[in-house]
Amino acid sequence: MSTDHESPKAHRPEGAHEPHAFFAHHFNTPDQQAGAAKLGMWVFLSTEILMFSGLFLAYFIVRMFYPDMVLAAHEHLNKTAGGINTVVLITSSVTMALAVRAAQVGNTPAIKRNLLLTIMFAGVFMVVKYFEYTAKFEHGMLPGKYYTAFEHGYYIPGNPHIFFAVYFCMTGLHGIHVLVGIGVLTWVYIRASKGHFGPNYYTPVENVGLYWHLVDLIWIFLFPLLYLVR
C-alpha cells in the first residue's frame, strides 16, 4: 500500500468535472459526490417502500379476512375526490420531472416555476384530502373504537372499523409524506432562487424529485386499492 503526497487536486482523475461550490472535502470528484448522493437516495427510497409495504400487507390481510366488509366499506370512499387527487399528483410529478430537467440544462427560472407548480399541486392534494377526511369524521367513519358510523345512519356489515383504521393509516402516512415533500420542495425552491443549481450541480433537485415521484408511486397503488377495487 502506498500513498502519494501530492496536493488534494491531484486526486481528481483527468477529465473529471471541475469542483462546484458545494463540493465536499471528503470526495475526490464531484461525480463521486453526486453518485453517492443518488445511491443514498435510492437506498432511502427502498426503505420507504418497505415501510409502506407493511401497511399494504395489513390491507391485503384485512381484505382476505373480511372480503365483503372491505367491499362494502370502500364504497363509502369518495372515488371522484380520489381520482382528482390522482390526476393532481401525476401532474405534480410531471412538473417535478421538468424541474429536474430545467436544472440539468441550467434554466433557473424554469426550475423555480416548475417547483412552484409542484408545491401548488401538493397543496391542492392536501386540500382535497382535508375535505375527504372532514367528511369521514362527520360520518363517524373513524378507526377502531371511534367508529360510530352506525349512529349516522350508515350500516356496513362486519368490522368496518378495521378497514377505516387501515384507510387512515395508509392515507395518513402518505399525507405526512406529502407534507414533508412540501417542506423539502420549498427548501429546494429557496436554494434555486439563490442560483445554486446548474448543469454541474443539481443533486438536491434530483433527489427531492426522486422522493416526490415515490410519493406519487405509492398513491398510484393506494388509489385503486382503497377507492376503486371491488
Partner: peptide, 29 residues
C-alpha cells in the same frame, strides 16, 4: 431492508394502543 418494517410495526402498535384500531386485537376482529 428490515428496519422500515419494524418502524411501521411499532407505529401500528402505537395507534393500536392509543386509538384501539383493532388490527392486532382478536376481540375487535
Amino acid at each position: 431492508l428490515a428496519t422500515p418494517v419494524l418502524a411501521i410495526t411499532l407505529l401500528l402498535l402505537v395507534v393500536e394502543r392509543t386509538l384501539n384500531i383493532g388490527i392486532f386485537d382478536p376481540a375487535m376482529g
